[in-house]
Amino acid sequence: MDNVYSLLAFVLLAGMILGSALLVVTLRNLVHSVLWLIVMFIGVAGTFLLLNADFVAAVQVLVYAGAVCIMLVFGVMLVQRPNMEHSNPINWRFKLAAPLVGGLFIVIGLLTAKSQLVVSGQEVPAQTVQALAPILLNDFVIPFEVAAILLTVALTGALLLVKEVKANGNGS
């Protein structure tokens, strides 16, 4: 009975994710695209909960649905066009892109259907959050510190990039 409920949850979450992702890439108004992106990220967080990845689900909501989407909304406001209705036009390449991504999806689907996955029958440990810290601070301590440096450098660089251009842009 538990299986039926998890399958139902998967179908609902997959519909929510794919529907809102399609709306994100097809809507004409960029602000609406960003709002549907938040719906998609929350659906993905639900999928992570279904997969017993509690910490990743929490990080998904905090980082993506919170920080990244707010940053994107501010970006849209800073480069606002006169008419928001047609702020997200499509270019001529969509005729090329549609068969390309359709073919890619079919190829990945066929490969998935053919692949023999060795599913381990083990249960996921009850506490999934506590197990992450020892791995992150023993085996992955160098990538962990590199990620910290990367974030610092990227955000400082972003600040510098925007500030410098503003100082030059006023003079020209």
């Binding site: 997959a14 994710i17 794919l18 992702a21 399609l22 994100v24 890439v25 960029l30 999928t47 702020s87 997200n88 036009p89 499509i90 270019n91 390449r93 969509f94 090329l96 892109a97 549609a98 390309l100 991504v101 359709g102 890619l104 999806f105 990945i108 689907g109 998935t112």
Partner: peptide
Amino acid sequence: MVLSAALFAIGLYGALSRKN
């Protein structure tokens, strides 16, 4: 994996077909 492939295809379509 099929859900992820569909989502990846949608993202690739958006990246190729948008102007903004």
